[in-house]
Amino acid sequence: MSQRPLNVGMIGGGGGAFIVQPHQRSIHFDGTRRVTCAALHPDPKVAKQEAEAWEYPLVGYESYDQMIEEESKKPVGERIDYALIVTPNHVHFDPAIKCVKAGIPVFCEKPLTLNLDEAKQLVAAVEEHKVPFCVSHTYLGHWTSRFARFIVTSGLIGDVRFVDSRYLQGWLAERTEDTGSVQAEWRVDPKKSGASLCGGDIGTHALMQLRYVTGLDVTRVQANLETFVQGRVLDDHFTTYCELSNGGKALVRATQIAIGHKNDLGIEVNGSKGTLSWRQEFPEELTICLPGQPDRTYFRASVTANDGFLGDLPEDLMAEPNIPAGHPEAFHDAFARLHRCFEQDVRAYNDGKPFDCDGSKYANVYDGLIGMQFIDAAVRSNKENGAWVDM
């Protein structure tokens, strides 16, 4: 017997916000989740108007406070099963902690909060109320990210010696914030974006990709935050040299002034037995380089076990639903995989059963906290002329 679709409430997403589109499409991806209500805008009148004009029927609330209050009164099955927060950074903490305290699971855009203090408070609330919590690090949802994690953490390329994890963009190479771009305007404002523009916006993705693929943590940071576009307060170029928990080293770097680059997240892991390379703009493939052998390129949906490099492969990895090789998965599929995995934990939570939320399928609230600790350490290192700062 099929289960009822989960009800999702959106917080933010009005005014043409980019990120809401891939989220809502991926929520409806499997037919097991649906967006039923939303608080789309901080102006109550605009929020109602946008809800009435939305592309499919949903209940429009004047504010997220009203949504949380009204939905939390309803019984399970009628209320929202989780909230999706797609607001600018400075409006992550308040709705997230209110949802958690109301017993509503949260799927929140990254970075977790505006600052480290908020992140610590949110973690404490999640621990107290024990609700599922996901931080939306999209690129963990690519099947090849999970395959990369298996390869590295299984020791197939040996001990991790050095990692280069980077996210390169070029959309802020000029004063895009002066062109009427809402997406640029709030990102360059420290009151809305936080202490770092480039690091918080996309450097946290590079950090998360490193931590997820290698299973290692960053223990200390040496950082250089630079601003190339005149008149901009926050960094648009972010470079950190890091020490890893196994004694290895890493570059975690990001830029938004590299003309020609779009959303070029990539990672290279140099191990004692070989190297793994992956780029999210080519998410179907992953390359392994071994000494004295031709490079191996693996493609999603055409990976086979025991091929001379790979041994047995985990059943849960190979059982993940995907379309045949040559029909590319992409950005929306990655989002859908995260929502699909989160759905499993939300259903367990609704049924009063244990749930994992352990970071193996999606980034959790602790991953979000580590992201904020990383930004805090990088900003402090930069102020101290690149001194080493412990995480």
Rank of each mutant, 00 (worst) to 15 (best):
Q121R: 15
Y349L: 10
S193Q: 15
A38Y: 10
G155W: 10
L116C: 10
D356I: 02
T287L: 12
D356R: 10
G14F: 13
Y82C: 13
M208Y: 06
P57M: 13
D358V: 05
G359T: 01
V252E: 01
R34W: 08
N350I: 04
V269D: 07
C242T: 00
D235R: 03
G266V: 00
L140P: 02
A377Q: 01
V303Q: 09
S145C: 12
I257E: 08
P95N: 08
F309A: 03
F331I: 09
D30E: 15
K98M: 09
N89C: 11
E284I: 01
M208R: 15
D217V: 00
V152K: 04
G158P: 09
C37G: 03
A258T: 01
I259T: 13
E50K: 10
D295N: 14
H137N: 01
Q280K: 12
V163H: 06
V126I: 12
S145H: 11
V269W: 07
I85S: 05
A125P: 01
Q256F: 07
F93T: 04
P42R: 02
K48D: 09
E185G: 03
A348P: 00
V8E: 02
A319K: 14
L234I: 02
I85P: 03
A206E: 07
N263W: 13
E268W: 09
E177I: 02
V123Y: 06
L114E: 02
L286D: 01
A250V: 08
N115I: 13
A223D: 00
T144N: 02
E281D: 12
R347C: 03
P354M: 12
T214L: 07
V152I: 11
V182Y: 15
V152M: 05
G141A: 03
P42F: 03
N263D: 13
L122K: 08
A51Y: 09
Y167A: 14
A184R: 11
K191F: 06
C357L: 11
S145F: 07
C198Y: 01
